[in-house]
Amino acid sequence: MDRLKILKSRLPDWLGKLRAQAAVYAPVERAGVTCFARLAPGDEPQLDYGNTDTPLKEVLFPQTECLITWQRTPEGLQVQEVDTSEPTVIFGARPCDVTGLRFLDRAFRLGGIEDPYWVRRRDKTTVISLVCPHPVPGCFGPSAGVNETSPEGADVVLTDIGSAYVVEVKSEQGQAAVDLASDAFTSAAEEDLIAAREAGETLLAELAEQAIDLEEPEARAKAFLQSPAWEQVWNRCLSCGICAFLCPTCHCFDICDQSCRGGGERIRCYDTCSSKIYTKQAGGHNARPTAKERLTQRVMHKFSYGPERLGVLGCVGCGRCRRCPVDIDLQLELSRVEVKEPV
């Protein structure tokens, strides 16, 4: 396929065409925080960002969403499902976040049982990824298996070459998105392709300085849980939800009812294995009563259970979990642990 390019000055034309066909989600700043939000007419996406503070997943798996509604009527209870999926374009997502969708895709289709809320949105979504112009501090995407210049799961990949983006079309869906504004694109010249390749090489070379060793993740996870560092780590864990809610691959949720006037909504919202009440049963029994059991679950799910069950690591190296208020950096801990040779 011919490589294309689009001048930055033509980007609004493309976005306009996309927005006429679909809900376009792009990075924007909201009260000092960068996140993916739906572009309203006239909104400019903020594309010179490091990474969004909150992860891309919330476009397809909202922090809170209504699953069903019910109404009490003279004929009895009326229960209805809610479907708010619509044609959607994700514009300007970083490769790590895009790669995170892969883990969620597999989790939400686990056991052959499709989560309709995820699947309906995902199937209607075109992902346009934007390669990082510079390494984001704390990013170790390549160490977590992320293809930083052409991420799996993207339909289109844009690489910044100064006044323009070089465009890689990776799927039919991506081609359709490009075709919407075909006059905004031109064929990429040889020097454009070289510029894009060099941008990628520079990025990877710089990222190499931030690399950590996550080879043999399962062995590392187990070794870490036996290491002297572990006791300090779980003792200081505050059991909050930052690491899970900011993680591009965490998908645990709670379901609860909210009633009002003869009816109500059943919603689901993010939940976390770190929470003290996550596994607490009505009778009082709690399978994971302390931060030790809870954080063990997190470590093992990310680096052992997840890879075993879904075939991919539960980490994409975005580094958001380093917002931990007590400086728990599980990836760094794992990278430093001594992995013993199997006996």
């Binding site: 909201r30 009260a31 909150t54 505050l238 909050c240 939800g241 993010y270 976390t272 929470s275 208020p325």
Partner: peptide
């Protein structure tokens, strides 16, 4: 509106 209810 930004609050993600992480309870940190």
């Amino acid at each position: 509106e930004k609050c993600i209810r992480c309870y940190a």
